[in-house]
Amino acid sequence: MAEEQAVAQDQDNQPGFSIEKIYVKDISLEIPNAPQVFIQREAPQVGIELSNSASAVEDGIYQVLTTVTVTSKVEDKTVFLIEVAQAGIFQIRNVPQENLEIILSVTCPNILFPYLREAVSDISTRAGFPPVLLNPINFEALYAQQKQEQAAQANGSTTH
Rank of each mutant, 00 (worst) to 15 (best):
T78W: 12
L65D: 01
F129Q: 11
P114K: 02
S121K: 01
E75M: 14
L142N: 13
I137G: 00
V120L: 08
V57H: 01
L104F: 01
I27Q: 15
I48K: 11
N52L: 05
A2D: 11
I89N: 02
A154H: 00
V79K: 07
L65R: 03
S105Q: 02
F17W: 08
Q148N: 03
T66W: 02
V74D: 09
Q97H: 04
E49T: 12
Q14G: 09
L112E: 01
C108R: 07
I102D: 10
T78G: 14
Q148E: 05
Q146A: 00
A54E: 15
E30T: 09
V79H: 04
T67Q: 06
N94V: 00
P130M: 13
S72E: 09
T78R: 13
P35K: 14
I61L: 11
V64D: 12
A2H: 13
N52C: 03
A144D: 08
E4M: 03
A119I: 09
F90I: 13
T158A: 11
D76W: 09
D122N: 03
Q145N: 10
P131N: 07
S28K: 06
H160Y: 05
K21I: 08
G16N: 15
Q36M: 12
F17E: 01
S51M: 14
I61G: 06
Y115C: 02
A152I: 06
R93G: 08
S157R: 14
V64P: 14
I111L: 02
P44Y: 13
Q91C: 08
Q146N: 06
V24E: 12
T107A: 05
C108H: 04
I123V: 11
S157T: 08
I123T: 03
V37L: 09
S18C: 04
E4G: 03
N33R: 12
N138M: 04
L100S: 00
E58T: 11
I31N: 10
F139C: 00
K147C: 01
V79G: 09
Y62A: 11
F17N: 00
A6L: 08
N94W: 00
K77L: 14
T78I: 15
E42T: 15
N13P: 13
M1N: 05
S124R: 01
A87Q: 11
Q11T: 10
P32M: 10
C108V: 08
V46L: 15
A85L: 15
A152T: 00
P15S: 06
Q146Y: 06
S121L: 13
L50F: 03
K73F: 15
E98V: 02
I19K: 02
V7H: 03
R93F: 01
A8I: 11
L104Q: 06
E98S: 09
F38W: 15
A85C: 15
I92W: 05
S72D: 05
R117G: 05
Q145V: 03
T107Y: 02
L65S: 02
E149L: 07
I19H: 03
I39E: 15
E20Q: 10
A87T: 12
S53L: 10
I19D: 07
